[in-house]
Design a protein around this nucleic acid. Structure first.
Lengths: 339, 339
DNA sequence: CTGTTAGCGCCTTCAT
DNA sequence: ATGAAGGCGCTAACAG
């Protein structure tokens, strides 16, 4: 491996000068710069990141902790992170929490010991307040994704309440009066905000939402499938479903299928999160697509900002989801004959 | 940060001794070991990976170059890699080639300069022979995934020909005589092997495959959709389709849907790669599921083996896909009435 | 405008 | 069975 010393020798200058032209950290005579540049090119020199890290205690790398590397949401966000980091010439270390808060803690610690400059964490569904506090208190710059937490930490989230209110509002305006909502863990900010959007849509129209139509607590597709079956069994069953996330959509759609209900003629359906293959169901699904790439990019932006200024005030970014109007909602079937 | 020196002081020994108990690199008196261990625990010491990397020129990290981080295949493999690396106490750096061979080269170089110990690369569909040669000649241990290349390099692949032959054979035995196959780039080993499996199934039954039923060259879902439309327009159209990958399946299914054909009553369908949501199509799809997690694990195993013994002979692992018999293939509709 | 030099934290040879 | 000490490649005082 060619080292700084080799380059210095080749250019006939000291290592200090070479270092300074590389890092542009003090003025060097143009002619010298030129000679050094050529020497670097000729020798094919690339600096040793570990020597630099040792000396400066800075690695130009950030760790991404994925809640579940198999979830398309995580990987879509990761794509944005990767792109932004590459542009900033940072390296990305990735670890998978596999939806386990215990593993998540362990990974955060490992990454911290790797001396990454900062961490971007997409929390698992089960991460407790103390898990989150643990993560935020590692002494490392951290950006949290997806869930609002009441801590002094940078966060990037999606706008939930308003967006859901608009979409559920459209269903109400179509004539639906029994719209079920299937959502995740009840105390999560995303769940609460999305359910609140559902309530808001009703209130805005002077309607009183029936809380019996809310089913929260689903952590996987099968929970959602069961919840759907239960809701369909209500004395006064829903004429439409709103799903609060992609995993939940899988379950709700399965539940509807098992009940022999076709979307949208027999039941309307809309969801948070887009599904890439949604057009194959016969009925493309109306949804609120998350700006995943931008979420990742913004997380990086927030992190770099804090790296540049550790004392900046903590910021929470809210990105709007994109409404995709497709074909899965229509007027409700009242009784047997269409309206 | 607490350093080796701190620990040595706390234990009343030299740094050499501490280093040796940590790395178990020479015999140390049990009582001393005990004291050192306690000192490590008491001080909360963790070794600085960069100091170690600088000294030993080894980083205990490997880079994963994903052809397309948004493709579920890549991320499923990555999951296996992450798990295996974690177990081996290695760190994973990830970069996304985003299906661009140029970016792929750049990333490989970047990762190499990061001094990772080795690289696992899932090649992009467009990577040329020279791209691949470039990657394999970085002087770094490399494991290639998914595509067979005639180079001295470790590889982990899926068994294609036999598996496809069996599945296509089942369709032939059901009575299908016009089975179309839609596949990727024609000169890729995966394409060639899977098409060869299709031919083999025919030959094994004394049938002559009609090469007009082969459509290769699709690089994305839309190519596959168009190919499907074209095949359906044949004078003697297919009664069944075999898709060579998950992206292609998306396109073929769209093509069939656009043609108003329902699976399997009007047309049979089977594919390489599983689709998580396949059950929602009404008809769960019969397929050959790739052992993605194992592919990732095996890639790591191969890499660690080479790290341990740089002169080991190069090895190519072939993992069998898992046949999933579901409901998307049935007997062909001959004319109007069922057989 | 440029050079000299002291470490950053660790491993490892050489000595004892 | 243990210690002393040099040096991996780099940056940043300090000095000129």
């Amino acid at each position: 491996m060619v080292t700084l010393t080799d380059v210095a020798a080749a250019a006939g200058v000291s290592t200090a000068t070479v270092s300074h032209v590389i890092n542009q950290t003090r003025h060097v005579a143009p002619s010298t710069v030129e000679r050094v540049r050529r020497a670097i090119r000729d020798t094919g020199y690339h600096r040793n990141p570990h020597a630099r890290a040792l000396r400066t205690a800075t690695t130009e790398s950030v760790g991404f902790v994925a809640s579940d590397i198999a979830n398309p949401f995580s990987t879509a966000v990761m794509r944005g992170i990767a792109a932004a980091l590459r542009q900033a010439r940072y390296t990305m270390l990735v670890a998978n929490a596999d939806e386990s808060p215990a593993l998540e803690r362990e990974i955060v610690d490992t990454l911290t010991r790797q001396r990454v400059d900062g961490l971007i964490v997409a929390l698992t569904a089960e991460s407790s307040d103390s898990d989150i506090a643990h993560i935020a208190s590692r002494g490392l710059p951290v950006v949290l994704i997806d869930r609002a937490v009441p801590l002094a930490v940078d966060q990037v989230l999606v706008e939930n309440t308003e967006s859901v209110a608009v979409l559920v509002g459209e269903m109400l305006d179509l004539g639906h009066r029994r719209i079920a909502i299937v959502a995740g863990k009840e105390h999560h900010s995303t769940t609460m905000e999305r359910v609140e959007g559902w309530r808001l849509a009703h209130r805005q129209r002077g309607l009183t939402p029936d809380e019996a139509l809310i089913s929260s607590g689903a952590v996987d597709a099968d929970d959602a499938r069961l919840a759907t079956a239960r809701l369909l069994g209500l004395a006064d069953p829903p004429t439409a479903f709103f799903s609060a996330s992609n995993v939940i959509s899988l379950g709700v759609l399965r539940g509807l299928m098992e009940a022999g209900l076709s979307v949208p003629d027999q039941i309307s359906f809309a969801a948070f999160d887009d599904l890439e293959w949604a057009d194959l169901l016969g009925t493309p699904i109306t949804c609120l697509a998350q700006p995943t790439f931008e979420l990742g990019q913004s997380a990086v932006a927030l992190l770099l900002r804090r790296l540049a200024d550790p004392n900046a005030e903590y910021r929470t970014l809210r990105l709007p989801p994109e409404p995709c109007h497709r074909k899965s909602i229509t007027v409700p079937r009242t009784g047997g004959a269409p309206a």
